[in-house]
Amino acid sequence: MGESSPVVGEGERYKKVHYVTGLLTLFYGVYMVLALVLPLYRVYGVLDGLVAFSYYRVTYYGAPVTVDELDRTSYMAAPLVLFTVYMVFSGANLLLALLEGEDYTVQLRLCFTGGLVGAVSSAVFLGLYSYFFTRAVSTLSFSLDHVTSAGRLILGSSNVQQFPYTGLLLNPLVHLVLALATLLSSTLSILLHTGRGWPTKPHEAEGPGHAR
């Protein structure tokens, strides 16, 4: 085996950290995908169906119904979907670049930005969104029993049950921890990748995978 240059050797040594960054970013993205796609609540009774962050399907006595509040929260999930795609794309792109030995400076910066957005705003937004979402879901729990001149009508009720993983996926703290982990890892990666501080100019990069 030929002896590699000290710079390249240093970069190779730090690749493990970059892989961790890529994996963390990808994991955070996949976690977000699960949070958006997996059904979080099961509705049963007179209403029947499943409710996820980004979609829902609920029937009332067998006929599909639209729930205004859930429609609104579904639209509100659009930036989260975009951010999720961004995180999956950034993480996967960094891993591919690392595997193929290409320059991954921009990918690292994208991962760093993803971590930053996730830590600073996504967790907050998700917390707010979870609040709106759970508030909308709570409207699906009701009883149709009532009293008329005919007497007491027992028509059943609609109940909402959350899945075992719902608490984990809806917890903004988990998102925050994942985002912070991604942010820390990507910050470390960038610092290690650039040696010290931020690169001053792009043309100063010394070759593929190096910005110094």
Binding site: Y75, M76, V106, L116, V117, V120, S121, F132
Partner: peptide, 20 residues
Amino acid sequence: LETTLFVLFVTLYAVFTALY
């Protein structure tokens, strides 16, 4: 690049929250 993407996402979140 970081600032632009960050501001874009924050704006998106803010606008969608506002629209809601």
